[in-house]
Amino acid sequence: MAARFEVRHQAGKGWHFVLIATNGQVIATSEHYESHRSCLNGIDSVKRNAGAPIQDDTGTNEGR
């Protein structure tokens, strides 16, 4: 199974999405959006920017 986005709605909070990895684990959760369309636009933004470089300003080198 491929990774997927799931759009969810919570009464009083609005719409948000989660990104689910191929193993079924949630690996990202979005902010809440007022509209379904805004939530879908957020997914499109993540897709467009997914190849962005990592910026780590924590000053640690753990695991390197």
Score class of each variant (00 low, 15 high):
46 V>Y: 06
44 D>H: 12
14 G>F: 07
59 G>I: 08
4 R>D: 09
5 F>I: 05
57 D>N: 10
36 H>S: 07
63 G>H: 09
24 G>E: 04
28 A>D: 12
21 A>C: 02
16 H>D: 05
6 E>S: 09
49 N>K: 13
34 E>L: 15
33 Y>E: 06
17 F>A: 11
14 G>S: 03
2 A>V: 07
42 G>T: 06
49 N>S: 08
43 I>R: 01
16 H>F: 14
20 I>M: 03
55 Q>R: 11
20 I>P: 09
53 P>K: 04
52 A>S: 11
25 Q>W: 03
46 V>R: 06
39 C>H: 00
60 T>Q: 15
5 F>V: 05
2 A>D: 15
14 G>R: 06
46 V>D: 02
52 A>C: 04
22 T>N: 14
58 T>P: 00
36 H>K: 15
40 L>D: 06
19 L>G: 05
32 H>P: 11
31 E>C: 06
10 Q>Y: 04
21 A>T: 05
45 S>A: 04
57 D>K: 13
49 N>W: 03
58 T>R: 03
31 E>G: 04
38 S>R: 10
30 S>H: 04
52 A>R: 05
4 R>I: 04
25 Q>T: 08
56 D>Q: 03
6 E>F: 00
12 G>L: 07
48 R>V: 04
8 R>Q: 12
31 E>H: 02
44 D>M: 11
47 K>V: 11
18 V>E: 10
31 E>I: 11
39 C>N: 04
54 I>Q: 01
38 S>K: 12
43 I>P: 01
9 H>K: 12
28 A>C: 10
54 I>D: 02
30 S>I: 04
42 G>R: 02
47 K>S: 03
63 G>C: 13
43 I>H: 02
5 F>L: 07
12 G>V: 12
55 Q>L: 10
54 I>L: 08
58 T>V: 00
24 G>H: 05
5 F>Q: 08
23 N>G: 09
54 I>C: 01
39 C>P: 09
52 A>P: 01
4 R>V: 05
12 G>P: 12
18 V>P: 01
41 N>V: 10
37 R>E: 15
17 F>M: 08
25 Q>E: 14
37 R>H: 14
63 G>D: 10
40 L>N: 10
55 Q>W: 10
17 F>D: 12
61 N>L: 11
2 A>E: 15
54 I>G: 00
7 V>K: 13
20 I>C: 06
40 L>H: 12
46 V>I: 13
49 N>I: 02
59 G>P: 01
23 N>I: 00
6 E>M: 09
59 G>M: 02
52 A>M: 01
16 H>T: 04
64 R>M: 10
63 G>E: 11
3 A>G: 15
38 S>Q: 14
51 G>M: 10
49 N>Q: 07
24 G>W: 01
37 R>M: 05
11 A>T: 12
45 S>H: 03
41 N>A: 15
12 G>Y: 02
34 E>K: 14
62 E>Q: 15
9 H>M: 07
54 I>A: 00
4 R>W: 11
6 E>W: 01
4 R>M: 06
48 R>I: 03
43 I>W: 01
50 A>I: 13
27 I>Y: 03
23 N>W: 03
45 S>Y: 01
43 I>C: 02
1 M>S: 14
34 E>S: 15
45 S>F: 00
60 T>E: 07
18 V>S: 00
30 S>A: 08
45 S>I: 00
55 Q>A: 14
53 P>L: 06
